[in-house]
Amino acid sequence: MRGVRASKVTGLALLGLFCAAVTWAAPAEAASTERIVTDHRTGLAIAGFDPVAYFIQSRPVAGKADFEAHQGGAIWRFHDARDREIFLSAPEVYAPRFGGYDPTGLARGRIIAGEPNIWLIHGGRLYLFSRIENRDAFAANPAAFAEAAEKWPALSETLADY
């Protein structure tokens, strides 16, 4: 009887470890539901960074809670009211291309969230990357990656709606 009970306990422990490992590994590749990369707790797009600042100040700048806008199912923050108005006049220009997902991952058929501090502007659009190596690969051949990343419409359809 003890052997059966020990086997059950061991089996449950192994199942728990497996579940923990699967849960722990999940963030590397986004199993997301959003068309725009957002923080699940706050709803902030691109971790609260001002998307317009990448173009005007040529660097990531943290947005402020006083200057927010709701657009595309996400909350966007801005450094000032001017940046908020610029964004709202053309969100399709200032929002990160592919919703902030890494275009090199998309080119490979994988949905991976980009990081706001790893970025590049190409062709008048902001791209976010999950790794510096991905940004460098994209920069070496942006046209090829941008074209291959056009899998985005089909991939974005695989994201579930809430």
Rank of each mutant, 00 (worst) to 15 (best):
H79Q: 15
L88W: 00
F98Q: 06
R77W: 04
Y94E: 13
A69S: 15
A90S: 15
G73Y: 04
R84C: 13
W76F: 10
F87T: 01
Q71K: 06
A95K: 08
A74H: 02
L88T: 00
G73R: 06
W76H: 05
Y94S: 11
F87V: 01
R82A: 15
R82K: 14
I75K: 14
R77D: 09
I75R: 15
I86K: 02
D80I: 00
H70I: 09
S89M: 05
A69T: 10
Q71E: 09
P96D: 07
A69N: 03
P96K: 05
A95Q: 13
A69R: 02
A95E: 05
E68G: 08
L88A: 02
Y94M: 14
R77F: 06
F78L: 06
D83R: 03
F87L: 05
E68K: 13
A69C: 09
I86C: 08
E68R: 14
L88P: 00
D83G: 06
P91G: 06
S89A: 15
G73I: 08
H70P: 03
A74C: 09
A90M: 14
F87W: 03
G99S: 11
W76R: 05
R82H: 13
F78Q: 05
V93N: 04
I75T: 15
A69M: 03
Q71V: 09
V93M: 03
P96W: 04
R82E: 08
R97G: 05
S89D: 13
Y94A: 12
P96F: 03
G99Q: 08
A95L: 12
D83M: 04
P96V: 07
S89N: 13
P96T: 06
D83C: 08
E92Q: 14
G72N: 15
A95N: 10
F98Y: 11
D83P: 04
F78T: 05
G99L: 14
A74L: 12
R97V: 03
Y94L: 13
G99M: 10
S89F: 01
